[in-house]
Design a protein around this nucleic acid. Structure first.
Lengths: 210, 210
DNA sequence: CAACATATCAAACGCTTGTTTGAAAGTAAA
DNA sequence: TTTACTTTCAAACAAGCGTTTGATATGTTG
């Protein structure tokens, strides 16, 4: 074992990195092992040698650490739940929409939602369920006991729905509004809108129900 | 030509109907010509004989009449824009989520959004663009001139995002909330929530900005 | 009936997919 | 160097895909 581990670990790492790119771009079904290996500069057989199968590679390519740290950091960021929601949405939308950054994990996840793969169970239990719970607690702090649990759940769905919309319908939005670019400013503006829209809704709804 | 057109038109019609089912269920890429022909009780070659290609079949399988009539009916349903939004959301969510009914056109559309096919241009120009304009006018009636055009557009996105969420993440929601069923009651409750959530948000936001 | 165009069919074509194979190259310890 | 093990590679494999083909019915027209 030399300082860098014998080239084998290098190939493994390059495969995982290439897989994240390709899975994020084409989805699991659309991505091909050959394209992944081409980008990694590896032989076609490398995927099956190192990961057993295309499924195994996907499982290793998934990495929810970014999403987790985002949530834990948020918890201690500010005592005010409204401010924390604004902060979370900004970070989350950057992770979801920014082309750079190591945000591709979120994009892989988002792609899986449409047509499930064997990895969806892992994605749901390790990433999506905690995310829903996190937002559920945040909403609960904001609306308090002025809403039923069912209503709070629907508020979480309303927030997440607004977020995922910009990701899922990107090809459509590009056609309808060609001037639209997901740069940092635009993403910030989108996140701010979702925050204000959702906070206004929850604020108003709790007033009425009270 | 007999009373029913010689069996050829029958096969054509059965293929289109089967294609709508399969495209809606698996998406364009995931759907196979063989499965479509199997459900239609036709030979594999029938698709290329009648439609030239799988792409051609998709083009014929698309049908936006339901979405269009929904919009035109809505325009003359009620003078109050808030009531029209509630009504539209109820009909739209039924079209999107109800397993029965000829609602599959919407599902095919929604599937295409994730990964574009050659048919996406047609879908955007003939269905999605009019839908966005329709909702844009409705939002404009509700918020009047108390919002900028950019803000109004984002409100349209917020509404559509909430709607498409329930469709796109259905496999996930089924895992997180196994008791969830998209029956008529549940769909109605979802639509009502989206309407009240969005109306509350727009109401509150226009107050602040005034 | 004969002639013709249309519609269906089993079979195959060419291609791409994920995966496997067996040999070659590289690496580490005896 | 020899031995044993790991890693890479070109090539092939089996399966699935959309599509094409040529024959065979089917129905219509002279």
């Amino acid at each position: 074992m030399s300082d860098i581990q014998s080239g084998s670990e290098q190939t493994r790492a390059r495969l995982i990195e290439a897989a994240r790119e390709v899975f994020a771009q084409y989805g699991f079904q659309g991505a091909t092992v050959r394209e992944i290996c081409r980008r990694a500069g590896a032989n076609v057989a490398a995927v099956n040698y190192h990961f057993g199968s295309k499924d195994g590679l996907l499982a290793e390519a998934l990495n929810f650490s970014g999403l987790k740290t985002l949530q834990t950091n948020n918890l201690s960021a500010d005592p005010c739940p409204e401010k924390r929601l604004r902060l979370f949405l900004k970070d989350f939308m950057l992770m979801l929409l920014d082309e750079n950054s190591a945000s591709r994990q979120c994009r892989i996840m988002a792609r899986e939602l449409a047509d499930p793969t064997p990895a969806l169970d892992k994605i749901v239990s390790e990433a999506i369920a905690p995310l829903h719970e996190f937002l559920g607690r945040l909403v609960c702090e904001i609306v308090g006991d002025k809403m039923s649990a069912a209503q709070q759940l629907r508020c979480v769905f309303s927030i997440l729905g607004q977020c995922s919309f910009y990701y899922h319908t990107e090809p459509v939005l590009q056609r309808l509004h060609p001037e639209l670019r997901y740069d940092a400013d635009e993403i910030g503006a989108i996140a701010a809108h979702i925050a204000e829209f959702s906070l206004a809704a929850m604020n108003q709804l709790t007033r009425r129900d009270a």
